[in-house]
Computed example of a mutant assay.
Amino acid sequence: MQARDIMTDEVETVAPDDDVGDVLTRLARANFNGFPVVEDGLLVGIVTQGDLVDLFQPSDRTLWIPVGFPPFLESLTYGVDLSWDEFDLGRDMAKNAGRPVSEVMTEDVVTVGPDADLDAVLALLADRDRDINRLPVVDGAGVVLGIIAREDLLAALKAVRDAGDAT
């Protein structure tokens, strides 16, 4: 079984100059968590819920408190968990909504070719360090042919297992 056998070939994409607000709205209505970013038919990035949420909720939740007198040579570091209530989401949305996706997308996209085997796809989607949920399938030129979500991989693994049990 190869990537071409398990990929979804109808891929929803966005363009690098699409507004963050529009993409966030589309993503809220979608049943997946990211879009490949395509320009002139070629994959140039990927934008995920995480990329967009980071615009409204800081990923660095650390508070530094200076110690002593200026110039502060030491600081105490505390981890803080700020709730969504402490953010002005309306202001953040207005500030970020007009930004192009190209400013927040991940440019170094992990992809596979259509001939990648099931083990290669499994290795990428199961890699905890990379934390990839959707794996674009591209040809040698970078044209998006399809996409494999973790759910697609699980369905393929089940089909392989079921086929093995039937023999």
Rank of each mutant, 00 (worst) to 15 (best):
41 G>P: 04
123 A>E: 14
62 T>Q: 10
59 S>I: 05
65 I>C: 00
16 P>T: 12
163 A>R: 15
26 R>F: 08
41 G>I: 08
51 D>N: 14
115 D>Y: 01
42 L>R: 15
42 L>T: 11
70 P>V: 09
128 R>P: 10
10 E>Q: 14
112 V>G: 04
145 L>M: 15
97 A>C: 04
34 G>C: 06
5 D>Q: 06
135 L>D: 05
110 V>T: 14
146 G>P: 13
123 A>F: 03
53 V>G: 05
100 P>G: 03
138 V>F: 12
31 N>L: 02
68 G>Q: 09
91 R>L: 11
113 G>R: 10
143 V>C: 00
87 F>W: 09
69 F>Q: 14
89 L>A: 09
87 F>P: 00
165 D>M: 13
106 T>Y: 03
85 D>Q: 07
61 R>T: 12
38 V>H: 07
147 I>C: 11
138 V>I: 15
15 A>G: 14
49 Q>N: 14
21 G>N: 06
9 D>E: 14
49 Q>G: 15
35 F>R: 04
27 L>D: 08
45 G>T: 05
8 T>P: 05
68 G>F: 08
91 R>H: 12
101 V>R: 00
137 V>I: 10
120 A>E: 15
93 M>A: 12
106 T>N: 07
34 G>E: 01
46 I>H: 03
164 G>E: 13
108 D>F: 07
102 S>W: 05
115 D>L: 08
33 N>T: 12
116 A>I: 04
61 R>Q: 15
104 V>C: 04
94 A>Y: 01
18 D>Y: 01
142 G>L: 09
75 S>G: 07
52 L>Q: 07
15 A>L: 05
63 L>C: 00
160 V>Q: 15
16 P>K: 13
14 V>D: 00
19 D>N: 02
24 L>H: 02
6 I>N: 04
25 T>F: 13
23 V>G: 03
107 E>W: 10
38 V>T: 07
97 A>I: 00
119 D>H: 11
60 D>K: 10
159 A>C: 11
56 F>C: 06
43 L>N: 02
16 P>D: 12
63 L>Q: 09
83 S>F: 04
156 A>S: 13
70 P>Y: 05
55 L>F: 07
115 D>N: 06
75 S>W: 07
71 P>R: 05
135 L>G: 09
74 E>R: 14
136 P>R: 04
70 P>L: 06
123 A>W: 02
92 D>C: 04
123 A>V: 05
91 R>M: 09
15 A>P: 02
45 G>D: 05
94 A>K: 09
95 K>Q: 09
25 T>M: 09
131 D>I: 02
19 D>R: 03
108 D>Q: 11
27 L>R: 11
21 G>H: 09
19 D>H: 02
150 R>P: 06
96 N>I: 04
15 A>T: 13
47 V>C: 02
73 L>E: 15
47 V>M: 02
108 D>M: 10
144 V>I: 12
81 D>G: 08
